[in-house]
Nucleic acid binder design. Structure first.
Length: 301
DNA sequence: GGGCGCGGAACCCGATACAA
DNA sequence: TTGTATCGGGTTCCGCGCCC
């Protein structure tokens, strides 16, 4: 499988011990909170770290594939969950029919929310690091780049380390995903994830251009920086503000040849965490300076 | 090498904020 | 109100360095 050949399997934290307290809880949300938790999942599905180590990555892998990740219809998501479930737990005793009201659906959606919020958080961190390292933050340049929502400025975006690093966080999240024949998962190419990554970077640069992105130095031992972004729908990473951008980007990304897309993925590999050896320090040291000569969104060289 | 301790990443959950 | 997304931080575990 492609997973087994990946040179960088960032082996999710392994759960060696079995869940002690997960014994006999009813398939019902915890009293009071009304929220499902892992404890409500079918007994045994977390054994061997299958749930977090395989099931969730496989689901995110599917979500990052070719569909608009903002608008996956619940029924369609459920169906995909079911197919993945049947495959991941094929050899174990754990059978389950997933329902829209059940624990699996809700807990998995929670994990998917965190998957998507990772797209929002990564470029914040990356670009913050960039500003600090390059000491750009206090210069006036940050307001000169009023690229905003202008798609023209996004030509050749595959070269941007910001986007590649953000894209890489997707591969870190889905590490451990397994082959799901029922979803043709081997041919899923993370195009939606790239669209999300590009959108997320665009969001942060837009915040910077708007002056909505504040860096504050926290006076403690050592130097700690805090990123401050205002609350509110227009500043967040959500479908209302960024769904359209994602959809627009998804079109040309979908139209890319497999070969060219593979080149992009290859470009992310230096940012994908490796397991043990050759632990690449994912610094931003390779920020390039040739951002001016992009001609076409789809250009490759 | 093997045990130990530390630092930090990953995972998860409850609280909170926000939307329907 | 109920339902959903996000935040903050507690807990667990990994990986590394240190000492024996």
């Amino acid at each position: 499988t492609e997973a087994s050949q990946s040179s960088a399997p960032p082996s999710k934290r392994l759960k060696t011990k079995q869940e002690e307290g997960a014994m006999e809880l009813a398939n019902r949300p915890k009293a009071g909170t009304g929220k499902f938790t892992n404890q409500n999942l079918p007994l045994g599905c977390q054994d061997g770290n299958l749930w977090r180590g395989t099931y969730i990555p496989s689901l995110a892998h599917w979500c990052g594939g070719h569909v608009d990740p903002w608008t996956i219809e619940a029924g369609e998501l459920r169906d995909a969950m079911q197919v993945i479930w049947d495959e991941v737990y094929r050899d174990s005793e754990v059978e389950h029919f997933i329902t829209l009201k059940g624990a699996i659906f809700h807990v998995a959606k929670q994990r998917l929310n965190e998957w998507r919020s990772g797209f929002a958080a990564t470029p914040l961190m990356v670009i913050t690091t960039f500003f600090i390292q390059e000491k750009f933050y206090n210069s006036e340049q940050r307001t000169e780049d009023n690229e905003g929502n202008n798609n023209k400025t996004w030509t050749g975006m595959w070269h941007s380390p910001f986007i590649l690093q953000t894209f890489a966080s997707h591969f870190n999240f889905v590490a451990g995903h397994t082959k799901i024949p029922g979803l043709d998962s081997e041919n899923i190419t993370a195009r939606a994830a790239l669209a999300l990554a590009a959108t997320a970077v665009c969001r942060v640069l837009t915040l910077v251009a708007q002056g909505s992105f504040q860096l504050e130095e926290i006076p403690v031992a050592g130097t700690v920086w805090e990123v401050i972004v205002p609350d509110g729908e227009s500043f967040g990473f959500n479908i209302q503000t960024w769904g359209e951008m994602t959809r627009k980007l998804l079109k040309p990304i979908t139209a890319l040849s497999d070969a060219n897309f593979a080149k992009i993925v290859e470009g992310t590999q230096c940012y994908v965490k490796t397991s043990t050896k050759g632990k690449e320090k994912s610094s931003t040291a390779t920020v390039s300076d040739n951002e001016d000569d992009f001609e076409d969104l789809l250009e490759f060289r």
